[in-house]
């Protein structure tokens, strides 16, 4: 590998790049430190998404964040996918490439969901092997994110933070710590989010994610469709302290508000950079039980019908 995780830059505070904001960004060139793209939205694009990305990439640092590598699948790596991913990286020169510790399908199918992996010695072995293969192929470190999870397998024997730590020790990959996902997963699977964050190998955390979610009483869905809640901000301040500060990004994918509202939400992060104060995370009030979907598709497909010229 040409570059080490520890050499990756601190990009500051960034936003997830979404089609709804293309015009605003091109017109006003807002003072955001960097943007993160969903790699799959641009890998084969020959239309407006790619045209806009090329312009934005000239003016802002870009990070590529993928959802389909399926590093945790027992299927072999899809080299056709990796080839397209690498081609996009060669063209837009991202600061790094990330995906999730998850699988999206087996037997060549894709569920288009970020599915949870069983956490044991067998899966650790297979996943670390695949991470090394990807890093060799992409010639750069792979950065992996902790996904939101909604179940724990009976066969899991290793806590997720420990699994991530072993992965890092074995491959020197980077971590994308999604603080909201830690909160969501800890609620759904009943583990301690503070112990989780304390246990991670902080020096390999390259980036953090912040996002909003939907609390349904007996479970939480990671919807990325609302402001960040206070308990997540508290976890963020803990992670900020432990990592010494690192590139941080706000994801907003459902009911996407105007650019300035997203940006203002992101900048709230500055209020949580002066140390972790609470010893326990405040609890959160529950919202009504609305049927919601994790990872809404707005984040993956363009709304083409609304993009016609008058004709």
């Amino acid at each position: 590998m040409k570059q080490k995780v520890q050499e990756l830059p601190d990009l500051g505070l960034g936003l997830g790049l979404r089609g709804e904001h293309f015009n605003h960004i091109l017109e006003y060139k807002p003072a955001v430190d960097w943007f993160e793209i969903i790699s799959e939205n641009f890998m084969d694009s020959g239309g407006r998404p790619r045209y806009v990305l090329d312009q934005i990439a000239e003016q802002y640092p870009i990070v590529m964040h993928g959802v389909s590598m399926s590093i945790g699948s027992t299927d072999p790596l899809n080299y056709d996918y990796l080839k397209r991913l690498k081609k996009l990286a060669d063209e837009i020169n991202p600061k790094w490439i990330s995906d999730h510790l998850c699988w999206t399908g087996v037997l060549s199918l894709n569920s288009h969901d970020l599915l949870p992996v069983v956490l044991n010695e067998e899966s650790l072995q297979l996943i670390t092997t695949k991470i090394k293969q990807v890093q060799d192929y992409l010639e750069r470190p792979l950065i992996l994110e902790n996904p939101s999870t909604y179940l724990t397998f009976q066969q899991s024997t290793i806590p997720e933070w420990q699994f991530l730590k072993s992965m890092v020790e074995e491959t020197n990959c980077g971590l994308l710590l999604d603080v909201n996902n830690v909160y969501v997963s800890s609620f759904n699977n009943e583990f301690d989010p503070i112990e989780y964050i304390e246990g991670l190998p902080h020096e390999n955390i390259v980036q953090m994610h912040l996002a909003g979610h939907q609390h349904n009483g007996d479970h939480i869905i990671d919807t990325h469709d609302s402001p960040v809640v206070d308990p997540v901000w508290e976890l963020f301040s803990l992670a900020w302290e432990r990592t010494g500060g690192t590139s941080t990004l706000l994801e907003w994918d459902g009911n996407i508000p105007e650019f300035d509202i997203c940006h203002a939400e992101l900048l709230k992060a500055k209020n949580y950079m002066d140390g972790f104060k609470k010893q326990c995370i405040a609890s959160e009030t529950m919202q009504q039980d609305i049927q919601t979907v994790s990872n809404p598709i707005d984040f993956m497909v363009s709304n083409v019908a609304k993009d016609f010229v008058d004709s």
Binding site: H112, D113, T152, D218, Q291, P296
Partner: peptide
């Protein structure tokens, strides 16, 4: 019920 969350999301997203 844990599994059901994934089942619901799978079909709803698609």
């Amino acid at each position: 019920e844990h599994m059901r969350i994934y089942q619901r999301s799978y079909i709803a997203r698609l």
